[in-house]
């Protein structure tokens, strides 16, 4: 048998060797599932709304000439800055994201700390319990909070039965309900990086601090907290960034006065059918988030080196 060797051009061979193939997977992923959609959204944001299918004008208009004319307008962006609703929504989202990140950090740190200091045989189980809620749909868990927080819900029922309050608390459809929902939903994202950090902390450092005359509480502030800073940053960004654009929780638990940019975005798309403005809202949100994302990148690079 005479097998003829197939001549493969060298540049193709180089492109398809195993190493490059594996490295290319994340790049292709980002290209097709992040960059392309982003370009589409950017394109829509530069269009004009029309009553058509799809509801926006084309970016490129093919006329008689060989070359298409570009139809781009910044009207949607200008509109965002002319109506104070949008700026308020951005600022309100920022406020809610910051406050809930801080609340999540405080609660998450104490949970992560206790799990990391628990006896080794308990740690796995405790960590499982932290992740356990993920086994249920996110939506169902948020709906469950409605059942707890509403005026005739479980919480008010329990409190009135014990006799702590006589009139039911109004929590449902307020900002408080939104905070409860966000902190509850995002807690695992805070706990996991913090736990990973605290668990590998060298206990002899705490002993060394005590040995040098440092009281336990002060040791926590001068040794434990600084050393867990990478975990704190990772947890805060993992919570802050998605909360900034959160839509489901304010929609289900918040009231009419709860203003969040995610909800506005939803409204633009599905009630106003103004896709260009909705896309512009998304692009601006992304621009705002690029700043903390870059900080997060930086901190991760530092943690690795």
């Amino acid at each position: 048998m005479n097998i003829k060797e197939i001549q493969v051009p060298s540049f193709l061979r180089r492109a398809f060797n195993g190493r490059n193939a594996i490295i290319s997977i994340p790049y292709l992923w980002l290209l097709f599932l992040f960059l392309f959609p982003f370009i589409i959204v950017l394109k829509i944001s530069l269009a004009q709304p029309v009553i058509a299918m799809p509801p926006y004008t084309d970016l490129l208009k093919w006329g008689e000439s060989w070359w298409p004319t570009i139809q781009a307008s910044l009207d949607s962006y200008l509109f965002l800055f002319s109506d104070s609703l949008y700026i308020h929504a951005y600022l309100s989202s920022l406020k809610i994201a910051i406050i809930s990140t801080i609340l999540t950090l405080i609660i998450g740190y104490s949970i992560a700390y206790s799990v990391a200091r628990a006896p080794t045989r308990w740690r796995g189980i405790l960590l499982m319990l932290v992740i356990l809620p993920f086994w249920t749909s996110f939506l169902i868990r948020v709906y469950a909070w409605i059942g707890i927080l509403k005026t005739e819900g479980l919480l008010n029922l329990a409190l009135t039965t014990i006799g702590i309050i006589d009139k039911p608390l109004i929590i449902m459809n307020t900002d408080l309900a939104v905070y409860i929902g966000i902190v509850y939903s995002y807690l695992p994202f805070m706990i996991l990086p913090l736990y990973a950090n605290l668990e590998k902390m060298d206990m002899s450092l705490l002993e060394a601090a005590a040995d040098l005359g440092c009281r336990p509480l002060k040791t926590f502030w001068t040794v434990t907290i600084p050393l867990s800073l990478p975990g704190i940053l990772a947890g805060c960004f993992l919570v802050f960034i998605p909360v900034m654009g959160e839509f489901v929780i304010p929609d289900l638990l918040g009231g009419s006065q709860t203003l969040m940019i995610g909800k506005v975005l939803w409204g633009e798309f599905f009630y106003n059918r103004d896709w260009p403005v909705a896309s512009a809202v998304a692009i601006i949100l992304l621009a705002i988030l690029v700043v903390p994302i870059m900080f997060y990148q930086k901190s991760q690079e530092k943690a690795i080196s």
Partner: peptide, 29 residues
């Protein structure tokens, strides 16, 4: 308790505080 004893210890792992400089480590106590 250890933080009140007039005794200091040099740890086998040295247990130097990684976030502090050499002089801050020495100054810690």
């Amino acid at each position: 308790p250890p933080h009140l004893r007039p005794i200091n210890m040099m740890f086998q792992s040295y247990a130097l505080f990684p976030h502090l400089t050499v002089e801050k480590n020495i100054a810690f106590g």
